[in-house]
């Protein structure tokens, strides 16, 4: 039978044999090793991305945890501060009332002692005034007696003594 275009089954099979040879060879020598390498690298990169995402989420969790802890600590610190301030206020108030009482006591004592001192001074001043008055009187008396006696003597001695004294 004359096949159109000189199609030859034997030669088609030869081409097929050649192609299958090429297919097997190229698959084993080039396609598979290169594809395996690419797949391996891709999975490696994917693994790195997954790990980094996991680490990122872990870090986010830790961050949230720490933020919660910080908030809790802030709350605790605020409460503590309030407590301490209250306590300090109470202590201060207590000390202030004690100091006030002490001060009142001191003022009272001072007032009492002042009054005593006043009385004592007034008393001693009276005595002093009396003694001073006595002294002054005595002095006045002595002075008047001296001047009288001098006048007498002057009168007696004709002024010699007062002239010598002068």
């Amino acid at each position: 039978m004359n096949v159109p275009l000189n199609i030859n089954l034997q030669q088609i099979l030869l081409h097929l044999f050649n192609f299958l040879l090429l297919f097997g060879g190229l698959y084993l020598l080039l396609y598979k090793p290169v594809k395996d390498f690419m797949d391996k690298r891709q999975s490696k990169i994917r693994q790195i991305i997954e790990e980094s995402e996991k680490m990122h989420s872990e870090a986010e969790e830790k961050k949230a945890e720490y933020e919660a802890k910080i908030a809790e600590f802030d709350k605790y610190a605020a409460e503590k501060e309030k407590e301490v301030l209250k306590e300090a206020d109470e202590k201060a108030e207590k000390k202030l009332s004690l100091a006030r009482a002490e001060a009142e006591k001191i003022v009272e004592e001072a007032r009492v002692s002042g009054r005593k001192e006043h009385d004592r001074i007034v008393e001693s001043a009276g005595e002093d005034i009396a003694s001073l008055a006595a002294e002054a009187a005595e002095k006045i008396l002595s002075e008047s007696m001296d001047s009288t006696y001098a006048a007498f003597l002057d009168a007696v001695s004709g002024g010699e003594i007062s002239g010598k004294q002068g």
Binding site: I7, N8, H15
Partner: peptide, 10 residues
């Protein structure tokens, strides 16, 4: 060659 083309097409 038609035989080669037929081989690949088929």
């Amino acid at each position: 060659d038609i035989n080669g083309a037929i081989c690949l097409g088929a």
